[in-house]
Amino acid sequence: MARAVTPQRKLLNTVLAWAVALLLFFPILWTFLTSFKPEPIAVASPPQFLFFDWTVKNYVDVQNQRNYFDYFWNSVIISLGSTILGLAVAVPAAWSMAFVPGSKTRDLLMWMLSTKMMPAVGVLVPIYLIFKTLGLLDSRIGLTLILTLINLPIIVWMLYTYFKEIPGEILEAARMDGASLMSEILYVLTPMAVPGIASTFLLNVIMAWNEAFWTINLTVTDAAPLTKFISGFSSPQGLFYAKLSAASTMAIAPILIMGWFSQRQLVRGLTFGAVK
């Protein structure tokens, strides 16, 4: 809603909005700045903001303590893997619910969402034991499977709301023009579905990357992703603020940057199409 306002009013809005935004962003900025401080400066009183001897020593130290890239790759593999697997299962399901809805479609969607309400901790023991029996503990495959399952309802929902907006008449028109099923899927449906699938993909990579219950409880070292990497700094290393900040920056930077680029697509997906 662009309304005409006086420049003074606009200036006031700008100052207020920037103040709120910087306040919310401040913990991240502070972590970033602290990650470049020598340890004594990080706990200096009064706090030092910009004028200190910037150093990358903390990053080197963290990297020497535990290999960041092992955890990074596990995060990448697990979040991409679970998202792709989830899409492979969810695309056909969402497709059929959107284009061939039955009387039970709505109940089915609600039921899927309700499985998200099951408290993970309630089933931790059996899942742990099943994983132990099958040898899936601390394995990327096991973790990928779990994350696929917990995010599946959301993937189905998001895709469903996107697919539902593709008008069915287009398919009929293509069929009338003599398009085969294959070309119908390839040339008519796919181009219309790609934006929806892409933003579902983005959101689920972010959710899988940040999932911190199963990834921490079901891994030790081999499959440990960045959530596990960072929880290793809870104590007593947590007292070394500069190193903690460096490790935190390393854990959040990839997904934060990705989030910045995709934030406009996120809203629709996050609300299952209820808010556009």
Binding site: F25, P27, S231, Y241, I252, G259
Partner: peptide, 24 residues
């Protein structure tokens, strides 16, 4: 830019958020 700054905390994984707040 305001939008991007405001949305940022949403992308932070819970253990990192908790550790930053707890310690710093």
């Amino acid at each position: 830019i305001v939008r991007i700054l405001v949305i940022s905390p949403f992308f932070i994984m819970p253990p990192v958020a908790a550790l930053i707040w707890k310690n710093m």
